[in-house]
Amino acid sequence: MRHHLLRWGEACAGRPPLVMLHGWMDVGASFQFVVDAMRGEREVIALDWRGFGLSETTGADCYWFPDYLGDLDALLDLLSPGAPVDLVGHSMGGNVAMSYAGVRPGRIRRLVNLEGFGMPDVAPAAAPERLARWLDELKEAPSLRPYATLADVAERLRRNNPRLTADKAAWLAQHWARETPEGFQLNADPAHKLANPVLYRKAEVLACWQRITAPTLWVEGSDEQLQRFWGGRYTREDFEGRLAVVPRLARTVLNDAGHMLHHDQPEALAAALEGFLDAP
């Protein structure tokens, strides 16, 4: 598969490449505002995950977390085959980064998870119903509705995140959508809408997290998100128990920021990243 990469800066002695992984229904260009705010010189790389942005789609009926790990492994083999990198992931990208850092601990020098909370644990008994739902959804091709103009895409972005300023939304819309004969279509494979037949198993995730050796920074916005996303299905207490297994963990909270903290507070996030990545 062909993956789209964005690259900023050049290789710097003493500073490994910084690889940034976006979240679900996002794109690598989403990190532009944070990169703009960084003061130090370093090479930064952001990819579009398969089925997002300008990367190719799989043509399959579902997207699997192991494939994201495989894509990241191949990317790091290309970018830095002989030395570890610094890895930052947001939301879904944060979860991929955490699992990868546990599976390939020698490949990561420092690790940053931006609101990659993960998902509620799913009991094995839920498998039949989930598989049945997936089979039912396969009978009709999924689709994403088009937008008449890029301004409409920008408006949707601002509805999703009221903190996003109009100028940032207008810039992001050019990367989130492309023009088609039917209108402006989001750069995302509609197959992402299908139920995932693979259950999320917390025990498997934590088996990876506890093997992380890199110093790890957890960053979240001050606007609590777990309750909004999951209600009582996934509690803060559950999440804190998950973080407790990470061996070398630091934490920070960005004020006046929600889940899209790289959009809400790019300057504060850039300062937190550089302070962590450049510390002795």
Rank of each mutant, 00 (worst) to 15 (best):
A60Y: 07
P81H: 06
D73F: 12
W64M: 05
Y68F: 15
G94C: 12
C62V: 13
R39S: 13
M20T: 04
Q32C: 06
D86P: 10
W24K: 00
G93S: 12
G106P: 07
A83T: 14
R109A: 14
G93W: 04
I45M: 05
P66S: 13
F31P: 02
E115I: 06
P81M: 12
A60I: 00
D61F: 01
G23D: 05
G28M: 00
R107K: 10
M119V: 10
D67S: 12
P66H: 10
L76W: 10
L78G: 14
E115K: 02
F31H: 01
L87T: 06
A74Q: 06
M119F: 14
M98I: 06
G106C: 06
M98K: 04
G53D: 06
G53Y: 09
V112K: 01
A83H: 15
L18V: 10
E43N: 09
D86G: 08
H22K: 01
Y68H: 14
R42G: 11
G23W: 02
G118R: 05
L54T: 03
P16T: 04
S30N: 07
L79F: 09
P16Y: 00
G94S: 11
I45C: 05
V112T: 08
V35M: 04
H22M: 03
G40D: 15
A83P: 03
L75M: 14
G118M: 03
M119D: 00
Y63S: 12
P120W: 03
G23Y: 03
G14W: 08
W64E: 15
G102Q: 08
G82A: 15
A13F: 00
S55P: 07
S99H: 08
G106H: 08
I45G: 02
A83W: 10
D67M: 12
G106I: 02
R110T: 02
F117I: 01
E43A: 05
G116A: 09
W24E: 01
D36R: 12
D71I: 11
V88R: 05
G23V: 06
E43M: 09
W49P: 05
D77A: 15
G106A: 13
N113I: 11
L78R: 15
E43K: 02
L18T: 00
V85D: 06
P66T: 09
F31W: 12
L18M: 01
Y68M: 13
L76E: 11
R15Q: 13
W24S: 10
D73N: 15
H90S: 07
G116T: 13
F117W: 12
G14D: 07
G106V: 04
H22P: 03
A11R: 07
S30G: 15
V44P: 00
I108Q: 03
F33L: 15
Y63H: 12
R107D: 08
H90K: 07
Y100G: 05
G116D: 07
V88G: 08
R104V: 03
E10H: 01
E10A: 13
D86V: 04
A83M: 13
V88C: 14
R109N: 11
V85H: 06
S80T: 11
R110N: 07
G53L: 06
D86F: 04
L47M: 15
D121Y: 01
L79G: 04
P84M: 13
V96W: 02
I108M: 05
